[in-house]
């Protein structure tokens, strides 16, 4: 967990120091999408090679979709309460 924070923080500091070097940032942005592609590919390989997971992938998919709807609904509800009490006045001027 500390490693996670360390890498994130190092990135933020370097990003801040290089904030005006546009070619560096462009390379970083491009590398980011490739890193995500590679990670998702690794995850897919790991999942495909796992027979226990593959035998239940249909159920896992449904579970994921419903969890996603639950998360969105929860976020809408709580942020809706915040909107009602703290943001409504902006629009009622």
């Amino acid at each position: 967990m500390w490693m996670i924070f360390l890498f994130l923080l190092t990135g933020v500091i370097i990003g801040f120091l290089f904030r005006n070097k546009h070619n560096v940032l462009k390379t970083a942005a491009k590398t980011t999408s490739w890193a995500v592609f590679l990670l998702v590919l690794f995850l897919g390989i790991s999942v495909g090679g796992n027979k226990n997971v593959m035998s239940t992938i249909g159920v896992l998919g449904w579970q994921a979709l419903i969890t996603s709807v639950g998360s969105i609904a929860g976020s809408l509800l709580l942020s809706g309460i915040v909107y009602f009490f703290f943001f409504r006045d902006i629009h009622e001027k």
Binding site: M3, I4, F7, L8, L9, T10, G11, V12, I13, I14, G15, F16, L17, F18, R19, L25, A28, A29, T31, T32, A35, V36, L38, L39, L41, F42, L43, I45, S46, G49
Partner: peptide, 30 residues
């Protein structure tokens, strides 16, 4: 042979790389 890539440390190192890049993205954004 591709299963080599699913070895846990491989995924871990790419995670660190991704976090670093995300940090750069946040830090450089005015």
């Amino acid at each position: 042979i591709f299963l080599v890539f699913s070895r846990v440390d491989m995924i871990l190192y790419s995670l660190y790389g991704l976090l670093f890049l995300v940090g750069i993205d946040i830090g450089s954004n005015p």
